[in-house]
Write a protein that binds this DNA or RNA. Structure first.
Lengths: 194, 194
DNA sequence: GTCTATACGAAGATAGAC
DNA sequence: GTCTATCTTCGTATAGAC
């Protein structure tokens, strides 16, 4: 007994929490360096020295593990962003970050693709939530920038946010398939016309 | 011998070509009606009354079959489009078409997602080619419309094309995850600002 | 050429031993 | 809490009937 919680449902032990975090971090590293090729539970397990069953002890499914990797990276990305000002400055920051981590962009794209088919509820709810909050945040930032600059606009800012996110994701896919696609340049084009 | 081709490599027989087409059409129907859930080769085979091995006689892999389904639908879509004038009118036509066929949009999104991971060369080359020609065609149409209207623009039309396609695909994914997302409305927003 | 039957290996998931 | 053994399903491969 290492827990002071005497209830029947005592939650994870400290050791387990730490181990889970280690697995998550190592999985992120493995994916980032080797690519998504070896992202079967067995391959990940072998790479970080645990059995595939052990992985499932901490993550309810492969899908859940990979979603957590994405969430983890997202949070790290937000921390790195800090209080960078300006919607498009923030976008460009993320875009540049992604360019040097193609494997994680690939993981994002792959998981997003699977999230739209029935049966992958973990990924689906992650991405649905992510898009919803991203749209809301972006719309809020746009509103702030607009009022700060004294201008005003009659366009639906939620639609603008939706459009920006769509363009970002869509360009990233095109870029993965053809590295000649200029994500940053095209985003600047969008910025200019908005 | 039902072929008049006397060479050593005489290609598929008439019956085979027809059968292949039947399988393709039926697969499209099955996917459209039942969704991508049952798109294992065995499930497709069972649904249309052939063994999964027979499917592989006509299509070198599951990936190849599904890519062909997408290509087939794309061509049908282009035929239906006819000579509809105007870049955004064409986009909206396709968007409306897609709204009533969510299963095929799901198939598109799913396959696109897998195409970016190594090892799925069939899907990758299909989508890479599709994006390349779509960008070129769209840029050409934009150029034509611009010169026809006597205006001119200093923006890179290839980038505009890339942006429009990215927005279209990106919005479609958001829509699949949340039907409240307004694809057509947001595309009109993009049209207005361009 | 067309197709059925069957086998193989890898994958995610599960049960239960320790 | 962790791991081994096993189950099921998948894509793929091959043999051979017609």
């Amino acid at each position: 007994m290492t827990s002071t919680d005497g209830s029947s449902s005592r939650g994870p032990y400290a050791k387990g929490v730490q181990r889970r975090q280690e697995i998550l971090d190592q999985t992120l590293e493995v994916v980032a360096s080797r690519g998504i090729d070896g992202t079967s539970l067995r391959a990940i397990g072998e790479a970080i020295g645990v059995s595939h069953a052990a992985l499932r002890h901490y993550f309810s499914s492969r899908e859940a593990l990979l979603v957590e990797v994405l969430r983890e990276r997202d949070e790290a990305s937000n921390r790195a962003l800090g209080d960078t000002a300006g919607v498009f400055a923030r976008l460009e920051f993320v875009a540049h970050r992604n360019v040097v981590e193609p494997a994680l962009v690939t993981l994002y794209t792959t998981l997003l693709g699977t999230s739209v088919e029935p049966g992958n509820e973990t990924a689906r709810s992650y991405f649905a939530g992510r898009f919803a909050t991203a749209r809301a945040e972006l719309a809020g930032q746009l509103r702030d920038e607009l009022t700060a600059s004294g201008r005003h606009s009659d366009v639906d800012l939620d639609q603008v946010a939706s459009l920006i996110i769509a363009a970002f994701d869509g360009l990233q896919v095109q870029w993965l398939l053809d590295r000649d696609v200029d994500i940053a340049g095209t985003l600047r084009l969008l910025e200019r016309v908005l």
